[in-house]
């Protein structure tokens, strides 16, 4: 059963994002929120963590948190879907289990 993981910490300040990816199974969904959305930007030291999964996770980032931080959609890594709060709710509803990584 796929899990929905949410990550709200910057990948540069905490190891939360790396730990989440290390523990996520193929087919799981990872939604980046709050400072977690910094992991969604192209060309960062953390982008390699996403590339290493070779697309076996469904990745999402919350649009309002991207906009707040000045991250335009064109600087979001390809393959990460930008969702709004409605999309956040849908993801929670679609998954039997959610894990909020803090």
């Amino acid at each position: 059963m796929p899990i929905l993981h949410t990550v709200n910490k910057s990948p540069f300040e905490k190891s939360t994002f790396k730990s989440c990816l290390d523990h996520a199974r193929p087919g799981d969904a990872v939604l980046l929120i709050e400072d977690g959305v910094y992991a969604a930007t192209k060309g960062t030291a953390a982008a390699g963590l996403i590339a290493a999964r070779n697309g076996d996770l469904a990745l999402y980032a919350l649009g309002a948190d991207l906009a707040a931080r000045g991250i335009s959609e064109k600087s979001v890594i390809e393959g990460i879907s930008v969702v709004d709060y409605g999309g956040f709710v849908d993801l929670v509803a679609e998954h039997d289990v959610s894990q909020a990584w803090l």
Partner: peptide, 23 residues
């Protein structure tokens, strides 16, 4: 430095998160 550089990134728009944009 570190994540502090994010404080002065341009184009911040906080309408969607209900916080004050202090940039």
């Amino acid at each position: 430095f570190d994540d502090g550089v994010y404080q002065i990134v341009k184009g911040q728009d906080t309408k969607g998160i209900g916080m004050k944009n202090f940039s």
